[in-house]
Design a protein around this nucleic acid. Structure first.
Lengths: 198, 198, 198, 198
DNA sequence: TATTAAACGAGACGGTACGTCGGGTCTTCGG
DNA sequence: CCGAAGACCCGACGTACCGTCTCGTTTAATA
């Protein structure tokens, strides 16, 4: 059932794999990403450099695997569905803001941003594996709300998702600050006004 | 009257300065930013490496000066004021989208994004020198509209700015695509609905 | 029994080592020693700079290893012992003069002289590894001659060695010229007169 | 009558000239000659680099002028003529040894040696300006001794000079040590024995 | 005494080489 | 036979000096 047992991982050391991802996660927080070297990861993980190059093509790939390892269980920030649209969205956005505010996660995400800007392939992976599911969940939530009449039926939901996510992401990415719970409330006021029925 | 403008750059070669910024702008487009080296800039500019290190502390600083040089005259994308709010905003957003779509500018902006994620000092410069004026112009335009009754008087204009700028910036930064004129229209539909009077 | 022969050079590439020493020997002859760069040696040897710095602390150390490599087999100029003191010394001095006159060796020795003047540690190595054995051989030859009555028994042999070697070395070092076989004869006339019995 | 008023030294600053030579003399003692830079000389002398390059072609030329300045008045070590040959030579050799032993002079002379090995032109200047007069003085002294019957009439005086000077110079240059007054005595014993009449 | 041309201090400039860091590959050895 | 260890070739780093080249600013011989 495993979809891709390809390239038969032969005998891959699980110990080495997780040591490498753990070391990466630690180092991303400790040193500026531009100074993060494969040698440092190997040294921290107690692993030969070759063991890294054998399994990952680039530093960015290691970073992404480390990220997937972290966001593995609970797929990032989950979106609840209590029936109260505003409450659900508020919960989600507050959790997002909390992540972006937490120093370790902030460092990690900025490293990911750097790789996304540098490498379109990694950008695609990020979109497909992490972004798309999240956006789809929000869109689905809005769709339900539209059916129940909580929001306008003809609203462009894709753009509505952008309206919810874009402002927060942009403020974080450009370091504009102001990412508080109050901000989330103000944002929701406007976005919900935009999609309010008739 | 100032007795010592001492820190005055002494005798700085304008020829070298502009050759360096030009070479940087060219190379940012030609090679991935991670592979862009100071040596390459120096070689392309026909300049000694030391001449770069003498006047800029980091590669990012050179990049930013090159950016400021480009966006020098017309401060980036200007915001017209015709009295028709939607038309003004549409013009502005379309120009922004056009920039982000143009390969040279796209490459340049991604390089800037990398530096912003890496260096808070550069992020601050970017915010203060380029972002802040633009956002202020938009906010001012909205303020005028609020006074004339075109939009709700009690709307939170700071968040309204985010609503306009965030979605576009986020789609570009994360490579989500779909940055078309149609998208701008859909976006404006929702945003103007959000701030529509009573 | 030694638990850690650790400082053992690990796995050192013999290919690189000899390529470096050969390149050095060639370049010492081709360019003035002051212009001889480590980068040129590395390039000529087809080797990374780091490989040189890994095994030698300074350019002078490489030069000395190259010299030892050359003077390896026949320990420099050998001193024969035929029973005829004057003939033996004449052979030795002529060989010395021949070396000093040969352009490649001249260039090499002048480079060594420069390093000796610059670095007392290298001077010590030179004395111990190359000079001392040679001087000891001469002194031993003179000792035998003293025992056989060919020269005065109470002559200060250390100084006698200086008398043989110093004039030639000085004329060469200061570029005074006149280093011919005739000069060797004149020199031997005087030196042997100095140590002639009774 | 001045054969070359050419290049008319125009107005040369004596202050600068002597400051440069003094700074050079100081620095030769303070830093290894290989690390002695023109920039350091200029800085120490409170002079622009160009002022050095205007009047001297190379660092070695400055060094030599500094040396000539020092050995200016008393042309190096003078050779007395008291009628007692051994006493005269002993005085001269002891003075030479004293110079070579004095740390400042030692450093200076080693710098000169480096330049002589590096640059045949400077070697020639050194021979002509400093070495030749000294050797001629010794040879003249020996010639007088030969006439007076103190030494053999048919001795090769050029080689005799080498016998006196070479051993001391060589021991110093190669760092063999043992440059004491006792050594001078032993040396004179042998050399005078070599040229003793019949 | 005022003019003027050079030499001067300062230091930026285009370069070369330095000695170091890290990338990505290859080789050796131990488990 | 994988993995740790680390040497290897290579390219770039940021620094130190090179020798040249402006810049004003003395400075001393003329005009």
């Amino acid at each position: 059932m495993t979809p891709e047992p390809k390239a038969a991982p032969a005998r891959r050391s699980e110990r080495a794999r997780s040591a490498i991802l753990t070391a990466t996660a630690e180092l991303v927080f400790e040193v500026p990403y531009g100074r993060l070297t494969i040698e440092a990861i190997a040294a921290r993980a107690g692993v030969g450099k070759q063991t890294i190059y054998r399994w990952w093509p680039t530093k960015g790939a290691v970073l992404f695997d480390a990220l997937l390892e972290l966001s593995g269980g609970p797929d990032g920030v989950a979106l609840p569905e209590t029936g109260d649209l505003r409450a659900d969205l508020a919960l989600f956005l507050r959790a997002t803001v909390a992540e972006m505010t937490e120093p370790r996660f902030d460092a990690f995400l900025r490293a990911v941003m750097i790789e996304i800007q540098s490498d379109p392939d990694l950008a695609e992976i990020y979109r497909d594996r992490l972004l798309a599911p999240q956006r789809e969940a929000i869109r689905e939530r809005l769709r339900v709300a539209a059916l129940s009449g909580a929001i306008r039926a003809d609203a462009d939901l894709e753009v509505a998702v952008d309206l919810l996510v874009g402002p927060v992401q942009t403020r974080w990415a450009l370091g504009l600050g102001g990412l508080t719970e109050a901000y989330v409330d103000s944002l929701l006021d406007l976005v919900l006004a935009a999609v309010r029925p008739s």
